[in-house]
């Protein structure tokens, strides 16, 4: 599973970081991006899905197969 933040859509709500701090990083202004290449370590899949569903900007996409 792989996740990606669309930085054009992110408005810095920080919801992804709060539900899944292992998977997202914030820059100094609070805009989010995925950690590393976005690969979701085993066991964190549910957190990744929650980050997607809680983002008010619908800025996070998930690829279940990668």
């Amino acid at each position: 599973m792989r996740i990606k933040v669309d930085t054009e859509k992110c408005e810095g709500h920080n919801r992804c970081f709060v539900v899944a701090a292992e998977l997202f990083e914030l820059d100094d202004s609070g805009y989010a991006h995925e950690v590393g290449d976005g690969k979701v370590p085993a066991g964190l899949e549910e957190k990744a899905r929650l980050a997607v569903t809680n983002c008010p900007e619908q800025a996070i996409s998930i690829d279940e197969d990668k």
């Binding site: 408005e11 709500h13 609070g30 809680n54 008010p56 900007e57």
Partner: peptide, 20 residues
């Protein structure tokens, strides 16, 4: 509540700067 993409702080470019 697990799924809660509320927009109490607005949404888009004017998202409340003081939300944190």
């Amino acid at each position: 509540r697990e799924v809660n993409p509320h927009i109490a702080f607005g949404v888009g470019i004017h998202r409340c700067a003081g939300s944190n």
